[in-house]
Structure formats: structure tokens, C-alpha cells
Design a protein around this nucleic acid. Sequence first.
DNA 1: GTACCTTGTGAAACGCGTTTCACGTCAAGC
DNA 2: GCTTGACGTGAAACGCGTTTCACAAGGTAC
Lengths: 313, 313
Amino acid sequence: MANIRDVAKLSGHAVSTVSRALNHQGYLAEQTRKEIMAAVKQLDYHRNGLARALSIGKTNQVGVILPYINHPYFQKLADAITDIGFMNGYQVTMMPTNYSQERERHYLDMLKHHLVDGIIFTSRSIAFHDILPYRDYGPIVCCEDTFEYPIASVFTNRGESFVHAFQILKQCGLQHVGVTISRNEHVSQSAKLTLQAYSMVYGPGLDDQLIFRDTKNMFDGITAAEQFLKADPQLQVIFANGDEIAAGAQRQLANQQHPAIVIGQENLPVSFLMDFPTIDHQLTTIGDTAFELLFKAAIEKKQVAAKLILRGQ
Amino acid sequence: MANIRDVAKLSGHAVSTVSRALNHQGYLAEQTRKEIMAAVKQLDYHRNGLARALSIGKTNQVGVILPYINHPYFQKLADAITDIGFMNGYQVTMMPTNYSQERERHYLDMLKHHLVDGIIFTSRSIAFHDILPYRDYGPIVCCEDTFEYPIASVFTNRGESFVHAFQILKQCGLQHVGVTISRNEHVSQSAKLTLQAYSMVYGPGLDDQLIFRDTKNMFDGITAAEQFLKADPQLQVIFANGDEIAAGAQRQLANQQHPAIVIGQENLPVSFLMDFPTIDHQLTTIGDTAFELLFKAAIEKKQVAAKLILRGQ
DNA sequence: GTACCTTGTGAAACGCGTTTCACGTCAAGC
DNA sequence: GCTTGACGTGAAACGCGTTTCACAAGGTAC
């Protein structure tokens, strides 16, 4: 496979001149350009992107760290980032971690190794404190509040949106609530905010039987609904941590012919199809903003407003 | 940032010895190893993955070409590839094309530029004939039948599965069928097979009003159902080109209180939730196999059996 | 006529890790 | 005592594009 030196030799010009011709920069006589291009064509030369990246010190590649790839929340976020990345000439690589800290570190190391120009965390298991040192090797953005840590971030006002949703439920006279959360509230920011919002509106003391943890998919939603109905036969609301989960719960409620309502999150097509309310955390905006923040010199933190979408009864 | 030569200098050993130490290969005295590792630690040295890739001629990166990223079919396929890739030490990059041939070529060029080790096509707009020359630059696998072309491929027996599904529908006494297809049947292999299967079972002459083209999402499914009901008020079946589309159609049928049934494809959670039959094209298996074929020396073609999943009435 | 650009080009260094090959020990085998 | 092979190490070349800097030629300005 021909390299730039072969092109130089064949065209009778210097390597640097060929490089200039290929990059359309600096002074170059039209005649020279033509001769070089002829040689390029004759040799079927294509420049080696790796060598180029090494030389320039930039890969035009960004990584998206996410726990699971087949999860609607992270998919939607990753999609947004991939799209905006493409529009800006970047390749986006998925970095699934299954919440393994080892894997998260592995991906962060890619920053050290110059294999990606930046990394976006959609969720994490590793502590902010441990992410910090990696900032020396390249930009990092988190799609959640990073509080006092000097790490760029973008997030919705989750807590407020949860409080708002619970308030509306309460105003509708609904008192018996079951709540599903993604991970243990000591680990997951979102889970913590959900329980806090509940307490703020309904007061403390939500029966532990009415909290369902580690809820990830539709099937967990089904199981959660079953558990809630056993714990409280008068259940009126299931506050789910995602639309697919809400959908599973709704299906189970229908199966048991119990009239409670569900509320989901993310505004996925299924929430429209099955006609239940949902909290839209504006994942597309979050993704776009995350990408935008990645290459800003200063460490910025942005908040986006979540939107409550009312449906059904 | 320190490089391997700095480590060599500090440790008092040769660059090649350092390289050997870092790669755990060749002969190396334990004492030397220790001294080198001490220098590595002292300098906070991390090897440059780009330089390594350039030197080795391998990026451990594969690309997945897909039209849209937020489309359940391609997502499921891409997920499978990302997973299996990770297990094999590969990074997987999404290459969304929106069916633009220019973009497809752009990504294929990345193979020329040594930026990826291989490419998997989940769908394409470009002709096989035009893909062929790129095979000189690296392995390519298509997730569809490549017929006489020497391009590796893996696919389900789509045509047969469609015929099978139509036969069952016919046996149930269902005659009035509407069909949705993803793209024009002259462009899309799958669309062509769908219409052929219909003709084979029900005979030729499906009213053009009962074919809905360019069907991509739930909303198209809704529109298709509307159109079909206008064209044939006795409609009994909607044969959809995807579960989300089928879901949209089912919703519209319910809205108009019309008793027709829908059948989807891909066996997504929604088909279970909304309880309609679907054809499972085994996307996970397809993805796994595609990755496996990528690095096989010979050009192989594999077929996987689709599975009809009966539900509802 | 002198000073100073502008245009155009090439040699060489740089970014950085891997690999080949030659060479030097030292111990075992005969 | 000599051969052979295992063990260990380093100089140099290689993969390849970009960038800096020096230099030459032809103009223009005053």
C-alpha cells in the first residue's frame, strides 16, 4: 500500500509538498498540485488516518460510557450524541460497562492512551472523585449533576420534576403510591431524588414494600406491580423509573384488573401507545448539550427543564 | 507527556527492552522489568494507543453501518455486535447513514484509511457491486443475502418466514390483508420478499392501496392502518414490517374499533406488551455471527432460521 | 538601488511504539 | 575444551503523515 513518500517520489516533489497538497494549505502552485494528484491517483494512495491522528494528536473520536446498550434511556441519549457528533465530524463509540467500575476505568484509560478525544458519561458507578484525575488526559462530561466537582455536566431538574409529578398525583386525590427505582438510593442519584420527592409531598415513611429496587426493564415492572398489589391492595399509583417499566406495570395491573394508574419517564413511544403520563427528561437536548460542552475550554454546568406529559385519565 | 523513550532513558534501558516489558513478550530479566516499571510509574507513562495501532497496523475498532440509530431493528442488531465485540476486545463504532450513499462511502473509506479493522453492514443503499472494491482494504460483512457476490453475509430465511406467516393467516381464514414495507420493493430486499410471499400464498394482485411504503415508525403504522381501512373496510390483517409499526397500527385499529389483527417483526418487548404475533429474525444471533465472520479468512455465508411467535387470538 | 514581501518548495525533525537482528553471556552436553 | 542453545539486551529501522524552518526567486515600494 502506497504511502506519502511513494507519492512524493513518483510525482518528483517533497513529502511536505505532498502533505500540503493533500491538506489544501499553504502555498502551492497549481501545476505542482496537478502532478501530485496524478501520482495519488496512479498509486491509489489514501492517507493513513492513524498516522495522521498520531501526528495531529487528535482522533475525532468520542466515547459514550453507558451501563447497557439495550436500554431505552441510554439508547436515546447515545443516539442524540451520535447524531450531533456526526454533524461535527466525530465518530462516536459505545462503551458499555454494565456498571463495572473496572470497565469504566478501562474506558477512561482510552483517554490516556489517546484513543478518544473525549468521554461522555451517561451514568456511572465510579465516584466523581475517581474520575477527576482523568480530566488531565482529556475532556469529560457527565449527564448528571456533578455538584462541587470540577467536571462539566448537563442535567434536568429531576428532583423538581419528581416533586411536581407527586404533587399533581396528590392533588388528584391519589394517596396509595408504589415507587420503582433503578438502583439502590445510596448509589443512584435519581433513585435518591425520587424517594426524597415522595417524602416531600407525601411525608416520610413510605413502606419499604412499596419501593421496588434495581428496576431495569418491562419484566421488573411486572414484578413490581405484583409486589405492590400484595403490599397494598388499595394501590392507586405506580411511579416508575422508566416508560418500559411503567408499561410492564400497567400490563400487570390490567391483568389483575386493578384500576391504578402508572406514570413513566422519558416519553418513549410506548407511553404514547399505552397512553400513560410520563416525565420527559429531554434526553436529546441533554445529549446535544453534553457534546457541545465536551470541547468547551471552561468547565460548564447546564440545567435543562424536564417536562411532565399528562395523558390518560 | 512521557513517551517510551523517556522511560528508556530514566530506567537506563533500551526502548526495545521497555517495549518488551510493556508487552510481556520475549526474554526479560525480572530485575530489568522492575526497573522499567518503576520508571513507568515515576513518569506516569501510558503508551500511546494510536502509535501502537499505527505500528501494529490494527485498531481493534470495527464499524457498524446502519441507516438510523434510533430504530429498534438496527439498534438490536448494533447492540448484539457491540456486546460480542467488547467480549473480543473490540471497540464498536456506530456509522449512521440515513441511507445516503455518500455517507456509506465515507465510512467505507475509513477502511482505506486504516481507521477501522472491519465493517459490518446492517443495511445499505449502495450496490454490492460498489462495495466489492473496498474488500481490498479490509473485511466486510453484510447482514443480508449477498447472492453471487463474494461478500461475507449472514441472514435469516426471510422469504420463507414471510410465506409461512401468510400461510398461517390464510389457514385462519383471513383474506383481507394490508402490508407495510420499509422501502420501495425495488430497493429493499426485505420489501420485495414480503410482496413475493404475499403473492405466493394469496396470488398476485394485491391492491396498491393495501401496500404502505416507507414505513419506519409507530406513526407510519397509524397512518397505514387508516389508509388500509379506507381502502378495504373488511380488512382482517395488517402485516407490518416491524413491531413498533404493528403497535401503531394496532392502536389505530383499536381507536376505530376495528377487529383486524396485526403481525409485527423482531419480537420487541412491545409485541409482548400489546400481545400481537411477530416474526423473530434472530437479530442477536445475526449480530454475533456477523462479528464472527468478519475476521474469518474465507468469505462465508450463513443462514439463520427465523422464528414465528404466535400470540393473541 | 535597497529593503521587504509574497510565493513556492524541500530537508529534516517530530509524534511514538514495535520489531528485527546482531551480539554477548553463561551453562549444559559431549 | 569446544559446541550449542537459552537467555537477555540494545541500536536501528519501520509504520506514516505533519510541521517547522531555511532558502530561493520574483515583485513591489520608496
